[in-house]
């Protein structure tokens, strides 16, 4: 028994050291490796999108133009859950309103459990670059720095795909498709088993069904996914439109 006790003491010490080693490998070392990538806030992301004139920014402008009443409500809207506490006086599409919409949209993407069926990660295997990537336009495989921001905390990589991956969604469908799809997925994707989300919509004064504030924010967020990799298509470039 004395021998066994000595063995268990050695095992205890080795166990504690191995536990620390595992901690080091699993989070301390990755943290050191990734420490030079700055973590961006939602405001940084919005400013960057406006400066680079990405598709996310032009899609947000489109939503503001299509649904002006909802957009006005977005400026006045406050919600503790998503940290949108500020009423924006200067109510037009700008960095501030864009950041607010992204924030609310991200939180409702989580609240509705979209991540139960949709992943947000393109792997370098299994033809995923062919399925989810846009040749010549998108840096298709997911890479660490695109996840170093506030809209990726908590991590939304997901664990199960029932629907397709969404991290390059900005390059796949336009905003009009998403409005119809969110209200009734079967209208755009026959046979889909995704439920409709009518509570993201309301009737406007003419009796038309339009996205409400949360719906508009969610659409802004979904159109933001992958937009940093997509070049804005020709018609939406301001210099082309002026000629």
């Amino acid at each position: 028994m004395g021998k066994m006790e000595r063995f268990s003491f050695v095992a205890l010490v080795a166990g504690i050291i191995f536990f620390l080693f595992a901690d080091f490998i699993s989070w301390a070392l990755p943290m050191f490796v990734l420490k030079d990538i700055p973590k961006k806030s939602v405001e940084d992301l919005a400013a960057e999108a406006v400066a680079k004139n990405t598709t996310a920014w032009s899609d947000f402008n489109k939503l503001a133009r299509y649904y002006p009443d909802t957009f006005k409500k977005l400026c006045e809207y406050t919600e503790a859950y998503s940290g949108a506490t500020e009423v924006i006086k200067d109510c037009k599409p700008n960095e501030k309103t864009f950041a607010k919409a992204l924030r609310i949209g991200h939180r409702w993407y989580i609240a509705e459990g979209c991540w139960n069926c949709h992943s947000q990660m393109v792997r370098p295997v299994s033809n995923e670059t062919l399925r989810f990537g846009i040749p010549g336009v998108s840096n298709t495989v997911s890479y660490p720095s695109e996840f170093q921001n506030e809209l990726q905390a908590p991590v939304l990589w997901g664990t199960k795909r029932i629907g397709p991956d969404l991290i390059r969604e900005a390059a796949v469908h336009d905003v009009g498709w998403h409005v119809a799809h969110l209200y009734n997925p079967q209208s755009t994707s026959p046979g889909s088993n995704m439920p409709g989300y009518p509570w993201f919509f309301e009737k406007d004064k003419n009796g038309n069904i339009v996205p409400n504030v949360r719906g508009l924010a969610l659409l802004t967020y979904v159109m933001w996914l992958g937009s940093w990799e997509v070049k804005p298509p020709e018609p939406f470039r301001i210099e082309t439109a002026e000629k």
């Binding site: 080795a14 191995f18 595992a22 890479y143 664990t159």
Partner: peptide, 27 residues
């Protein structure tokens, strides 16, 4: 002790082929 030794490093096996450093994935 076998389980105590080897379990702590297992967490990353849920994130293979993800943008996590490869040394963590291999371990």
């Amino acid at each position: 002790w076998g389980l105590a030794f080897f379990y702590p490093m297992n967490g990353v096996h849920h994130f293979l082929w993800s943008p996590i450093p490869m040394f963590a994935q291999y371990s």
